[in-house]
Amino acid sequence: MDSCLQTIGDYGLRALGYGERLLPRSDFTLCQQFTLIGSGMLWNIYFGVFALLAGFVLAVAVAMGKASSNRLVRKPSEWFIFLFRGSPLFIQFFFAYFFFLSLKGVSPIFDAFSSAWLGALIVLFLNTAAYSGEIFFGALKSIPKGDMEAADAYGLSGYAKFRRITFPTMMRLAWPAYTNEAIFLFHATALVFFSGFPARQQRGDALYYANYFADKTFNPFVPYPILAGYFILLTLVVILSMGAINRRLNRHLGKAPKLKIRPTLIR
């Protein structure tokens, strides 16, 4: 037990570069596998949380853009959504890495872009913005006509109407599908070190370490189920926190409707 605490101390933050420099190379224990794969989860959480937060803002903008009557705004939004929803994330990662590498030649400002922490985050951010943009757009289209007419009748217009009526209603309608998108986004973070972006100093995500152990122990039946367990936990946390937000969004309804993951999954 003590040695396991020791292992956690050594490897708990290994994915971020703290603790023991060398990964375990022989006599692999279950504790080591749990600790390192868990340490890698920090990256999955980092990618997921930041891409989701930044993507949310862009998604609202893109959804409004796609609904706009101005061609110059609508067309780019439509193309953005089409490009990122129509192609596999795997191929997007590959292209992004290529693109960022060539940018490096232009100016040293772009140096950081070819490392996973920034480059992959940008891809995930754009990707989730496109998917959520489509979800929000769908929700925008299904706002009951009466709500908008009532807003007009109250003399609301422009930004005030958007902030007080359009936006909150859109969110309420989109939330179940958006929860699904959030789950998928966290799962997609496992692809980062699998396609294009290199792992630096053996700092990788959960899948990277699971793969490391599978390769060193030659036994895939231990590390991958551990990884799966961590992801199921993460998914539960996502569902719970999105459910909490859902209750807040619907607090005016008295007893909030239970968050039902609707049969429309968007990704």
Partner: peptide
């Protein structure tokens, strides 16, 4: 990794 140089791993 053992030598201590900065390691970049590719698939």
């Amino acid at each position: 990794a053992e030598m201590g140089a900065t390691l970049l791993e590719f698939a």
